[in-house]
Amino acid sequence: MNDKDLLVCRCEEISDEEIREAIRQGARTITGIKRRTRAGMGLCQGRTCQRLVARILAEETGMKPEDIDPGTDRPPVKPVSFGVLGGVAND
């Protein structure tokens, strides 16, 4: 397997190379990368890939880990049905 095809965001199937390309296009935050690629927008909401994306961003740009914003967590942080979101309990 080619390293370029290495999946980083497993939920949305976004590869290492796609994330680096987004950074080359100018993304400088986790949120910026998310907007360009959908990395972190899947079922796990970035629990798996967010920290990996941060490390790739640090590698590509030379940013320090403490200067990388962890991104904005938004509700729902766990997958729920529209029924629950609309106020109907128990699905």
Partner: peptide
Amino acid sequence: VHTNAGSMKASYVLVATGSAEYPIPVPGWT
């Protein structure tokens, strides 16, 4: 506190959600 089993209210909330695992992507890890 909004949950999949409805919402509830309280004056105090203690968040003790623990930790998650750091992944290391390796070719073939899916």
